[in-house]
Nucleic acid binder design. Sequence first.
DNA 1: CACGGACGATTGTTACACAATCAGCCCGGC
DNA 2: GCCGGGCTGATTGTGTAACAATCGTCCGTG
Lengths: 221, 221
Amino acid sequence: MPSRRPDPGPTSAAVLAGALREQILDGRLAAGQPLRQEELSERHAVSRHTLRSALATLVAERLVVAEPYRGARVADLDDDALVALQQLRCALETEAVRLLHDAHGDAWPTAVRAPVEAALAALEAAEQAGDPAATARAHAAVHRSLVDAAGSPRISEVCAGLDAELLLLLRGVRPHYPPGALAAEHRAYVEEVRRGDTDAVRRHVARSTALLRSGRGAPQQ
Amino acid sequence: MPSRRPDPGPTSAAVLAGALREQILDGRLAAGQPLRQEELSERHAVSRHTLRSALATLVAERLVVAEPYRGARVADLDDDALVALQQLRCALETEAVRLLHDAHGDAWPTAVRAPVEAALAALEAAEQAGDPAATARAHAAVHRSLVDAAGSPRISEVCAGLDAELLLLLRGVRPHYPPGALAAEHRAYVEEVRRGDTDAVRRHVARSTALLRSGRGAPQQ
DNA sequence: CACGGACGATTGTTACACAATCAGCCCGGC
DNA sequence: GCCGGGCTGATTGTGTAACAATCGTCCGTG
């Protein structure tokens, strides 16, 4: 039924970048691990050129850091990177909430509210299923749906580009919440921002940052 | 006198990207113009591979848009792109101003104020010299110094990445101000934000957007 | 006039080679 | 003993030439 494929087929470099991103996010490629071009290109059965191209996209996503002639390695993010990232997310989401309130007041039309509600429901489902990785993705999706609702494409895009990095930051963080608490907290949060309380964004992000810091402090045991 | 060279020499791809960026920003490569790999690689005496690498960095900077198998072309930005970009800049600079006020109140230490003052002085000088391109760069530098003062590296970085795109947007816009007016307006603006008036950011950006839209409306004559 | 296939142009990918740089090691001089 | 210089292997950056995949277009057929 859908038209055949406007999609010519993603390039090899793109699918390779996707595979590497997946391996980084699920820990098969550990933080700080060097990424040698020859080894990786052989393992994935591609040319060294296309591997370099894939690495370049991952560098743009900040999942990989590279310096000329010294090679690339999986990014390992410290607490400073966490707070810097959260400050950026706070800037984007605060402005998104302000744009939403300027456009709709506290009576969001269903076209705006529906995706957020769907994301909240998905978060609740993932939490009940007990899958930490899926919960983390669903959590990111809630915030993304909120920012997307503002209808500012560049803000949305930067926010989307932060998702992978945020998931990398979340790796190894034990859930602090009993199942359902995260969804409930976010339902309340969405309600606050719907009333135009932009400070709620700051509070929410600050709380999240504090929890992540404490959760990352003792990764072993 | 300075240490010999911590710099191993920028890679060819990097200098090529710089050259292409310069050509795009000064109009030698017109907006919308296709960028053929073979032609450009021959003209700049580099391999097609390194050209592709340079193009990838320019795509990341949004000076070039590319789609697989269909080639790359110089970005041509419309009014929608302008307002989307300005919304993003507003988000970043508003948060920067808030961070500054949270950290220092309205008594900024000299370490914070000095770079901003220097950027303002440079803007005034460029304006008096009557060089529109230098004025545009100095104007961008004022806002960047303000954001950098907040000390949030990720916000600064996104903001810096927007500079080239903003300069591209400004191409062909006639100055609306008599010499000195831009610097004066920004001195007043900095004074407002120093007092913690985050709404001043929104007003400033909105005014700038309106002027740019009217200036871009009739590029010829 | 619609439709489908052939054709050139352009991009994506590969293989192999070489130059440039890095990291470590050995070695001689103070 | 320790410090600095040069050598060496490893790794990355770049070049050359080719081939495969895709796009856009033109052309012939019905």
